[in-house]
């Protein structure tokens, strides 16, 4: 997913665009930026600063600065939940745990090596069960005894759930087991940092009610989920950009901006 957030000088949201990322990162970055500018009703030259984040951060030709998703997430989460100390972000490709103090990233852990414990795990197993991802939560809600999935690997977990289904384990218990497997894995990862409240759960996977429940059950802490958990990283990037600009202005320093790439100009005029 590629997301664009534009904030104004007060930090208020002026545009929010979310789009599927294809293979052509650069072209997409330009297209979603254009859409966001339209939403905000702004020409590009009125945008004071652009921060790119996430895996694609180096593929945003018009960005002034790249900041990692870890720092941006911390900022975004803290802007919504000032008391946050621990944040969990589960996206389609990776899962990260953040330790935040006074609104700033203090430490982090990441699972970026393996699909198990990410949104991908849910997608693959939903496919195996013949369900859509957004149908899972309702199914899991009926579970009375969640299945304990013993393998970590996505591929082996697929084999395991198929064989447990054929043994007669009810579908809802299998689905609840899938949630529990990811929650256990990510919560264990989070424990490396030492979990302290408030805990906030973000990322695409946090939109899934079944997953939120599983994380709560495994953490033994209440878990806050932002209204729009998909854009906390982009939000944080925009807020960091705003801070950089305001800080430079307050000090009377020039705002160091990257030279715009020709490629971007062509896209914007087409």
């Amino acid at each position: 997913m590629t997301k664009v957030v534009i904030v104004d000088g007060e930090g208020l949201l002026r545009a929010r665009v979310v789009s599927n990322t294809g293979a052509e990162h650069r072209r997409l970055a330009n297209r979603v930026m254009e859409e966001a500018l339209q939403q905000a009703g702004l020409p590009f030259d009125q945008v004071s600063y652009v921060v790119a984040t996430g895996y694609g951060r180096i593929n945003v030709p018009f960005a002034d600065r790249q900041i990692t998703e870890l720092t941006c997430h911390a900022k975004g989460v803290a802007s919504l939940f000032p008391a946050v100390r621990t944040a969990l972000d589960i996206g389609g490709q990776d899962a990260k745990g953040l330790k935040i103090k006074n609104g700033v990233l203090e430490d982090f852990v990441m699972n970026d090596k393996c699909a198990a414990g990410t949104g991908r795990f849910i997608e693959v197993l939903a496919g195996t069960l013949g369900l859509k991802v957004d149908e899972l939560a309702a199914v899991a809600a009926k579970s009375t005894q969640k299945l304990r999935i013993t393998t970590t690997c996505t591929v082996f977990a697929q084999i395991e759930i198929v064989s447990r289904l054929s043994e007669g384990v009810p579908l809802e218990d299998v689905v609840a087991g899938v949630y529990d497997a990811i929650a256990r894995r990510t919560v264990n990862m989070l424990k490396q940092l030492g979990v302290e409240p408030d805990v906030v759960f973000t990322g695409g996977v946090a939109r899934n009610a079944g997953m939120v429940k599983a994380v709560r059950d495994n953490l033994c802490y209440d878990v806050f989920v932002p209204e729009d958990p998909l854009i906390t990283g982009a939000m944080g990037a925009a807020l960091l950009g705003k801070e950089l600009v305001l800080k430079a202005r307050a000090k009377g320093q020039p705002i160091l901006r990257k030279e715009r790439r020709l490629e971007e100009a062509t896209f914007f005029s087409s």
Binding site: I67, T68, L70, F108, K113
Partner: peptide, 13 residues
């Protein structure tokens, strides 16, 4: 390349 994100985040911290 995934390590790059971790190192960059560490530098930001």
């Amino acid at each position: 390349s995934p390590l790059r994100t971790r190192v960059q985040a560490f530098l930001e911290v």
